[in-house]
Design a protein around this nucleic acid. Sequence first.
DNA 1: CCTCAAGTGAACTCCGCGGTTTAACTTCCT
DNA 2: AGGAAGTTAAACCGCGGAGTTCACTTGAGG
Lengths: 216, 216
Amino acid sequence: MNVASKIKRGRKFDQVLAGARVIFLRDGFEGASVDDIAREAGVSKATLYSYFPDKRLLFMEVAKAECRRQAESAAEFDDEGASPRKVLTIAGRRIGDLAMSDMGRGVFRICLAEADRFPEIGREFYESGPLLVRNRLCDYLQRAMDRGQLEIEDVPLAAEQFSELCKADIQVRRLFKQDETCSAQKRNKIVKSAVDMFLARYATEETKIADAAETA
Amino acid sequence: MNVASKIKRGRKFDQVLAGARVIFLRDGFEGASVDDIAREAGVSKATLYSYFPDKRLLFMEVAKAECRRQAESAAEFDDEGASPRKVLTIAGRRIGDLAMSDMGRGVFRICLAEADRFPEIGREFYESGPLLVRNRLCDYLQRAMDRGQLEIEDVPLAAEQFSELCKADIQVRRLFKQDETCSAQKRNKIVKSAVDMFLARYATEETKIADAAETA
DNA sequence: CCTCAAGTGAACTCCGCGGTTTAACTTCCT
DNA sequence: AGGAAGTTAAACCGCGGAGTTCACTTGAGG
């Protein structure tokens, strides 16, 4: 039993949460009505309120769960043996996927919109989203440095740079509903370009030589 | 006279717009009440409605004006004679400033929140914001290529990459209210690192040599 | 000084939403 | 069978915000 949570569990708990997730992600916090959520969840309003004391708490619960879900998808990449190019390409593709996904967009949008009203939402999202990815990346970069593959003065900054590079040209367009689709081909090109740039700056001489041989 | 606009002009037009700007930027679209706006503008609600047919139109007008304002601040950089490092450093600082400003954050936040309900808002913001900056940057990069300073296969992508690099580590934290302040020193470091990385990848050999001499 | 258009403010309508209550119905345990 | 706990649909309350109306003021121009 979840002692920390003040929220009652029960048969229809997950059902309510699932419905709330759909509606909140579609309409945002203000835009979503509790009636809509109850209908979507296939549950009466009274039942909904028997589980969650109010709308705000329900929203927080949904947001937290969603952040956790996404954190999982940014899984670790521990390909110790592989070349930096290979490891970074895989990681970059994951980052790009997250930026393109409907879920990623929805959560980003709502968390940002509500970050002023509910600061803890902003923190929660940041920490279990971008920060988590960055930390994983930092760990890898540090290991690659220890192995003499990379040469970086400011590892956290480098991690952030790589992450941003992978989202170049797609994140903003996606967020603002321009150019809905983005071909896999284009995404590959962006990630490749990001890796090229990152290695041009941070790879040691040996790594560059090995990379040139590998790529050719 | 603005024929295209269906909105009546008049003595208090700008006054209303100014008030709306303050309140919308503070409270968002849903959060802002028309009464608040009228009060802030020092105008009666009736007058407000005599200028703008409804709240949505008023908001659109504010958002459009604000995007234009910001676009201006990302002014052109035609330092033809200067080295790529100098030009890019100045441009990068401007981009960073915009990402850090309250205005920049506010407009971004609200436009994103309303992009689903009012797609034209999303388009307007994207085109007069990020896209405009990118195009300016593209123009410069092309000229630098013509001069043999840079060597780029995909100019628009490179522009986007540089832009993203300049916002690394600050944009997201700023948006989600983490780490409110960011020292000028740190910002300089980020921009310098962005320029370093960009040149490492896209500068021609001669430029790299000249840059090394210049930096030393 | 009179006119008339623009502006005022306060009251008012309408509506949707958050949240509550109630009375009937289902489930399930003993 | 019986009863406690959970669920439901529907009506209901109160509030706050969008938009309207109207009697009244202001001030520039003939």
